[in-house]
Design a binder for these strands. Structure first.
Lengths: 204, 204
DNA sequence: CGATCTACCGGAGGGGCCTCCGGTACTCAG
DNA sequence: CTGAGTACCGGAGGCCCCTCCGGTAGATCG
């Protein structure tokens, strides 16, 4: 019923303390994530949001208002890195689509593995929705879809739903990178395995 | 250094109250898991261990002593079902190995999906170790390895590390069953995709 | 330059997680 | 049957999660 009503363009500008607190929180969170991983593999680092708020010198309520979920906070902290990962590099663009896709997945896996601190913060939430926030996942789908389209065009990839491929890739990440027992070679082997399935069936 | 010393076979027999409490806890946990799923897909059911202990009429400490981790509790509750899932049925045995493996994976997926209550209890832990407890995972590896061996023998499957295949399967489960947004068809499609990768490469 | 009006602050509060330890009551030896 | 030793009990305690709301300080208007 509200139809295509445009937003009333709120005139008031954001309060200064609001933006300052946001920055403080981001900085504190970043520090916490970076410091988190910890050498001991067994240690369940897991950053506390209350500590982040305290480090930023704001109340816990303020943290939750700016970042309603842990995911939102993690996403904001790694925003620029995510932008990079969620796009196709020139090098990847020049490769044949199947190899380009493989290269991109590898970049994604590296990002994933490097941000263990981020994973620790997300821990406990992803059963209820996503390792990849809906928006982030859409972005991944877009990238995957682009590779698939090119691959279908030149015959190097099968015609598949992008979200299926994204799901398969995330599955590999979840079971080989996120788990404590991760062995790096396994991620590579499983991504290769996935790519095998994506090639067109040999003409019977 | 202790070498192959046999355990001293504790003579004292388990105390009666101990075993009784264990049973009470298992019963209460079972009820909680079954009641948990809840119709509302968005609802974050998530059973509380303290509630289970209270329902069983024992202290929280008692629960933790009998089942040191949530995983241990879930495993104990579903022990018999797990035994069934972690073995090969006659029907599966009669199929060609590749189809048998596919059928078994399907059974596993069904189990996984049916036990959402179990998943909810596990939520929050599996970044730090496993959706599949080390022991459960070993059992899965054994089953997968059996199929692989048969498949390699008759040429219907490639020679691969069983744990890689298990990891891939778990990945599919994690990203298509565990997530809230699960679409049942996707699990099937991804398992099919996995099987494609497991077939021997066509002789170039 | 006030006065007003809200957007934003911050922490108290109810609940859960897991650990730790003093006390109990069950089992076994004599 | 009685006493000794100990396996097991149960909850208090420290930490974290997330929500909710009274109060305040910052932006805008006259």
């Amino acid at each position: 019923m509200t139809g295509s009503m445009a937003e009333p363009t709120p005139v008031r500008k954001a309060r200064a303390d609001g933006r300052r607190n946001r920055e403080l929180l981001l900085a504190a969170a970043h520090d916490a994530f970076v410091a988190a991983p910890g050498a001991a593999p067994g240690a369940a680092s897991a950053v506390s949001l209350e500590k982040i708020a305290r480090a930023a010198g704001v109340g816990i309520g303020t943290l939750y208002r700016h970042f309603p979920t842990r995911e939102a906070l993690a996403e904001a902290v790694y925003e620029s890195e995510l932008d990079e990962v969620m796009s196709i590099t020139d090098a990847e663009s020049l490769l044949p689509p199947d190899e380009g896709l493989r290269a991109w997945m590898n970049r994604y896996a590296t990002f994933f593995a490097a941000k263990r601190g981020m994973l620790d913060v997300l821990r406990g939430g992803w059963a209820s929705g996503a390792i990849a926030t809906p928006m982030t996942r859409q972005r991944a789908n877009a990238v995957v879809g682009e590779f698939l389209a090119r691959g279908v065009a030149d015959g190097s990839l099968r015609d598949m739903a992008a979200d299926d491929v994204t799901a398969a890739m995330l599955g590999v990440m979840l079971s080989t990178v996120a788990g404590a027992s991760a062995e790096p070679g396994q991620t590579q082997r499983l991504l290769d395995l996935l790519l095998v399935g994506l090639r067109p069936a040999a003409p019977a």
